[in-house]
Design a binder for these strands. Sequence first.
DNA 1: ATACTAAATTGTAATGATTATAATTTAGGT
DNA 2: ACCTAAATTATAATCATTACAATTTAGTAT
Lengths: 143, 143
Amino acid sequence: MMYEKYVDLLKEKSIKITPQRLEILRYLDKNRNHPTAYQIYTDLKENNPSLSKTTVYNSLEILNKYDIINTISITGLETRYDIKNIIHHHFMCKKCGRIIDIDIECPNIRKTLEQGHKIEEVHGYFKGRCRECIEKEIDQYGS
Amino acid sequence: MMYEKYVDLLKEKSIKITPQRLEILRYLDKNRNHPTAYQIYTDLKENNPSLSKTTVYNSLEILNKYDIINTISITGLETRYDIKNIIHHHFMCKKCGRIIDIDIECPNIRKTLEQGHKIEEVHGYFKGRCRECIEKEIDQYGS
DNA sequence: ATACTAAATTGTAATGATTATAATTTAGGT
DNA sequence: ACCTAAATTATAATCATTACAATTTAGTAT
Ligand SMILES: [Mn+2]
Ligand SMILES: [Mn+2]
Ligand SMILES: [Zn+2]
Ligand SMILES: [Zn+2]
């Protein structure tokens, strides 16, 4: 019952069901903070000591290939992962590093299609200073 | 006269003018195909044998910091660079690897600002199959 | 023009994310 | 219960980027 949801997701796509894939899927479902492969690996390793980093990478690759998760390359440093939900953009705070969901679609797709290209992925990334960090600065140094 | 334009750009920002920085700037001005640091390095190295890879990275970093160039993290693998011109998005073809300019701004910025965040960078990335690659496939296998 | 100095350049080594490889284990079908 | 292709694992390799320390240089002051 705890993993049923994820079993179904994998069954739909006829991907082989393994405990590792289920754990990773559940992790991404519970942790919507766009973790790195390494974060997923170390967190899950606590309760699954035999888990291998390679398996995390392999699993993320196949889950992405079958459109169950998304990749985010906003930092330029490492790939972040997001379980697929409604389409949205991302905002990265350059101060605290958080990656925040911005619930908008991209209305610009038309222009790309007009030129004859076929769009399979849309990534909208903003970078700057988040509200919390701005407010903290005001508290500290005055408006 | 050949480098005057780039000398002025650096002077404006009070960045120290060095032959290496001028070469890199000129390269990015002439090569609008979003090259990697390594591509810039190897191409410039031919006529500037003493050029160091570290210098390319350092120069790109400072040029980016002073808003003379942009970084593009569309591949997720390595950073691409673009001399700053009008705001635009990028389309990457998963077949041929080209990164193509899409001349649109992002009309979604409002939503991010509404939430109190301060936007300093906007990155719009599309991925898919470019027109040329699609046409080639049709030629080969029929529509 | 010369001398000075902080900053830039250079070559090399280190880091860190990701991928390749090969041996072992396992999921799912017969 | 067995078989086999696929998945997992540990380890090593790769590749982009950064750190470091010695050398050179741009820009300024003398
Ligand atoms: Mn998200
Ligand atoms: Mn561009
Ligand atoms: Zn923040
Ligand atoms: Zn193409």
